[in-house]
Amino acid sequence: MSILSVQDIGIAFGGVRAVDNVSFSAETGQVFSIIGPNGAGKTTLFNLVSGVYQPKSGQVRLDGEAVTALEPNRLAERGLSRTFQNLQVFFRMTARENVMVGRHLKESRGLLAHLLALPSTLRQNRESAEIADALLSRVGLADYADTPAASMPYGALKRLEIARALAAEPKVLLLDEPAAGCNPVETEEIEKLIRTIADDGVAVVLVEHDMKLVMRISDRVLVLDQGRVLAEGKGAEIRSNPKVIEAYLGTHGTREANLALN
């Protein structure tokens, strides 16, 4: 059974169907990528799946449970985490503290215990810090644990966001353009990280404009165009699909499309 199932999801803004009856499913341990031209509806689809927007039609199921339009925090409790297109980090916090923020759903949150600094709270904070350090090591940022986020390189911040999302122990991880703005070395680091996350049994759903990364890493690819599904399949099928090539670069862009998609 699919860990994430999206069926006929849709939303309109001002009468324009930004996402129009889109369906897909992702399996545990799979990298499922969503691509398409600018304005195709990729991030809007992510916002529907992650509870940022409420769909006007369709449904979302997570691990067999209907979760359509649940708030993001309730989805996170059920095992769905995400990152965003634009960096969403706390720049005045250290890398360790940023990741610890992602643990809050896994902690007891008694206000009185925190105010009194009870031993149980101190122990919980130590455990969260240890988990954060382990996650920073996993994403290659162990040396940045005590570094304020404001002093970290851009590519490291992208991996920091992934570490924070992993702190909630997700079953499904939505990554919105994790390699955007990264140089080739940073992109390669993120590519390897995504593959290891999937290999550890997490379903990774990826929106990304770097087509070479997408084709190297994806188990399946969904193509959106003007809010609708244009094609779905393995990378080789998508690369050779005439509709995909036309959507990206027009009917005369076959050579350029092959360079981009291979």
Score class of each variant (00 low, 15 high):
35 I>W: 06
91 F>H: 10
116 L>D: 04
160 L>D: 03
41 G>Y: 04
90 F>V: 08
32 F>V: 10
2 S>G: 01
91 F>M: 09
25 S>T: 11
121 T>V: 15
75 L>T: 06
69 A>K: 09
164 R>H: 08
45 L>V: 10
164 R>K: 15
133 D>T: 08
182 C>L: 15
35 I>R: 09
242 P>Y: 02
227 G>K: 06
18 A>E: 03
139 V>T: 02
108 S>C: 04
11 I>T: 08
94 T>F: 04
152 M>H: 03
125 N>T: 13
113 A>M: 03
187 T>E: 12
192 K>T: 14
91 F>C: 01
128 S>P: 00
62 L>D: 04
66 A>R: 14
78 R>M: 13
67 V>Y: 05
164 R>M: 07
222 L>Y: 00
234 K>I: 10
15 G>C: 03
86 N>Q: 12
105 L>E: 06
179 A>C: 15
109 R>P: 01
204 V>E: 11
164 R>W: 09
158 K>Y: 10
86 N>W: 01
113 A>K: 11
245 I>Q: 10
234 K>R: 13
77 E>D: 11
179 A>G: 05
213 L>K: 02
22 V>E: 04
59 Q>D: 13
119 P>S: 11
141 L>T: 03
63 D>T: 03
132 A>V: 06
27 E>G: 11
260 A>Q: 13
25 S>E: 15
119 P>N: 07
148 P>N: 12
212 K>G: 13
148 P>W: 07
21 N>H: 14
182 C>I: 06
117 A>V: 01
118 L>Y: 00
46 F>V: 13
203 A>V: 10
68 T>S: 06
8 D>T: 05
183 N>I: 12
233 G>K: 11
49 V>N: 08
184 P>S: 14
155 G>M: 05
156 A>M: 06
113 A>F: 00
220 R>F: 03
93 M>E: 05
233 G>H: 06
33 S>A: 13
170 P>N: 04
199 D>K: 14
20 D>G: 05
259 L>V: 14
142 A>E: 15
165 A>H: 01
167 A>I: 06
182 C>Q: 09
45 L>I: 06
247 A>Q: 05
22 V>M: 04
48 L>M: 08
121 T>C: 09
1 M>Y: 02
33 S>H: 03
241 N>R: 07
245 I>S: 07
120 S>Y: 06
134 A>E: 14
30 Q>P: 04
126 R>E: 15
131 I>A: 15
183 N>L: 09
87 L>G: 09
66 A>W: 02
224 L>Q: 01
53 Y>G: 11
261 L>Q: 09
48 L>H: 04
7 Q>W: 00
89 V>I: 15
254 T>E: 14
22 V>D: 02
249 L>P: 11
200 D>N: 12
200 D>W: 02
16 V>N: 03
63 D>C: 07
28 T>N: 09
70 L>W: 12
115 L>R: 00
90 F>H: 09
142 A>D: 13
229 V>H: 03
144 Y>E: 11
33 S>I: 01
229 V>D: 00
